[in-house]
Computed example of a mutant assay.
Amino acid sequence: MYDIFLKLLNERNVKASDVAKATGISQTVFSEWKRGKSKPKADKLQKIADFFGVSIEYLMTGKEPSTSESNRLSRKAQKDIEDILSSTEQMLRQEGLMFDGNPASQEAIDSIISAMRVGMEMAKEKNREKYTPKKYKKD
């Protein structure tokens, strides 16, 4: 992700400090990403993507989502998923969360959230396919 971030900085002739000021993300966070000490959270990724006018997928992979993938879920479905993940993330950040007898790391929490996002997106897509009446389906 950081490589793509650097590429966008160079292409747009912008400094990381400019992005930090515009998004409210500290420069310390950027340097931690660069060194691999932490991974960006979804809300910060969205702010950076919005700043550069790209998708989160582009920011993460360097590839734009295909049209069918980007329109796969409705805005309402995406908002529902974000609301659920936001409340779940708050719950996971509570003090005392343990995995295998050790305090949960930020990486573990981020992995759980990512896995939940993928699972919910797949479930929403399957449900849309299964429960959309034939007369509303596009061929």
Rank of each mutant, 00 (worst) to 15 (best):
D83H: 09
Q90N: 05
E121I: 02
M120P: 09
P103K: 14
I48R: 03
T61L: 01
K135Q: 14
Y58I: 05
G62F: 03
G101C: 09
A22L: 06
D83Q: 06
E95C: 06
I112R: 08
F30L: 05
V54S: 04
R75F: 09
K34T: 08
K37H: 10
K138R: 15
E82T: 00
A123M: 05
E125F: 15
N102V: 06
S87F: 10
K44D: 15
E107K: 11
L45A: 12
K76Y: 14
G101I: 07
L59S: 07
R12N: 15
P40S: 14
L45Q: 15
E64P: 00
A16Y: 00
E107P: 04
T88W: 10
Y2S: 09
D18W: 01
D110N: 15
A42W: 05
K15T: 06
F30Y: 08
S38A: 14
Y136I: 09
V14C: 04
E57V: 12
M60G: 05
Q90L: 01
V19R: 00
E11M: 02
K7A: 07
A104D: 04
S55E: 08
I113W: 07
E107N: 02
G119E: 00
Y136G: 12
P133I: 08
G62Q: 07
Q106I: 10
T28R: 11
I48T: 11
R128T: 06
N13R: 02
A104L: 07
L59H: 02
F99K: 09
M120G: 04
K63D: 00
S38M: 14
L92A: 04
Y131D: 11
K138Q: 13
K44I: 00
F99D: 06
E125K: 11
K34W: 08
R93M: 14
T23Q: 01
S26T: 14
E82C: 01
M1A: 13
I112F: 13
Y136S: 14
E82G: 00
K135V: 13
F51H: 04
S86D: 06
I4G: 00
R128E: 04
S55M: 07
E64F: 06
E32Y: 08
D139V: 11
P65G: 01
L85A: 06
V118M: 04
S70M: 15
T67Y: 11
I84R: 10
I112G: 10
Y131Q: 13
A22G: 04
E129F: 12
R12I: 04
R12Q: 07
R93Y: 11
W33M: 09
